[in-house]
């Protein structure tokens, strides 16, 4: 029996590859391993990535309780009815999430002899297949949530361990700088009318210096954090440079305004 991988194992966080060589004995071995793991754990079904094999294979028990193997499956048709489905998954233990699913789907797949096959699924079978086809394409249940609910999910269940967090410390550094700049801009406007706000003009050298150092600190820390989480977005370097540039320009602009107001 194979071990079922669970979130946030990074092996799960990849897209499964298309099965091209049907004569590869490893494919048959994987299917047998999946069947055994399903039986031993009394499950409806599994996809290969859940036991650490990044191949597009799903094995499950159909309505007649017989094993069905889907290789390279894809959904090409569906009903227009979208239903709310409360789902859990072996790879996300102790989690139940409400996601939107189609109530009927049409699936094209290949059997072990490489023949094209089609099936129409509805109800629980359709929901199960949508979840597993998502998984072979790299998608978890939480990828089907809206941004707000994803945020709640990550707060409750944590992020991806050593792979890629949803919330970076660098973002918090940037948020604090943003708030400071907004306050500074408001004070600059108020300084035209109110005496108490004029300190922002008098201390502009100091404020400018602190903010500038802040941007440099952000750039270095963000670079360190990006290196730490190598799996995160590949244009991170460009993002850091771009973001630092934009904030530097804003700081210089505010400095020039306060210089003119002196």
């Amino acid at each position: 029996m194979a071990k079922i991988l669970t979130y946030p194992d990074k092996t799960l966080l990849q897209i499964s590859g298309i099965v091209r060589d049907f004569n590869d004995p490893f494919i048959k071995e994987t299917i047998e391993e999946l069947k055994k793991t399903i039986e031993d754990n009394n499950l409806k079904g599994l996809c290969a990535i859940q036991i650490g094999v990044p191949k597009r294979i799903i094995v499950y028990k159909d309505k007649n309780n017989e094993f069905r193997t889907l290789i390279n499956p894809g959904i090409f048709g569906k009903s227009s009815n979208i239903i709310d489905s409360l789902e859990s998954d072996e790879s996300l233990p102790n989690v139940k999430l409400n996601v939107k699913r189609y109530d009927k789907i049409k699936v094209m797949y290949q059997d072990i002899d490489k023949n094209d096959r089609f099936l129409e699924a509805s109800g629980d079978e359709a929901i199960f297949l949508q979840r597993k086809i998502d998984m072979i394409n790299g998608g978890y249940l939480f990828d089907r949530l809206n941004k707000k609910r994803q945020k709640e999910f990550f707060k409750s269940y944590g992020t991806y361990g050593d792979t890629c967090p949803s919330y970076f410390i660098k973002d918090k550094i940037l948020k604090a700088l943003r708030i400071t700049l907004i306050i500074q801009a408001i004070l600059l406007i108020l300084s035209l009318f109110l005496n108490f706000a004029k300190f922002v003009v008098n201390y502009n050298h100091l404020i400018f210096g602190v903010e500038f150092v802040w941007v440099i600190f952000y750039a270095f820390y963000a670079k360190y954090e990006t290196k730490k989480y190598k799996n995160c977005t590949s244009c991170q370097g460009a993002n850091i440079i771009g973001t630092s540039g934009i904030y530097t320009a804003v700081i210089i602009l505010l400095y020039l305004i306060s210089f003119l107001l002196r």
Binding site: L13, Q14, I15, D134, N137, G138, G139, Y140, F142, D143, Q150, T159, Y160, T163, C164, P165, S166, N231, C232, T233, S234
Partner: peptide, 14 residues
């Protein structure tokens, strides 16, 4: 295509 989504890679299908 493969894209970064929620911090991990998924298919453009999703």
């Amino acid at each position: 295509a493969h894209i970064k989504w929620n911090g991990h890679i998924i298919s453009s299908k999703i």
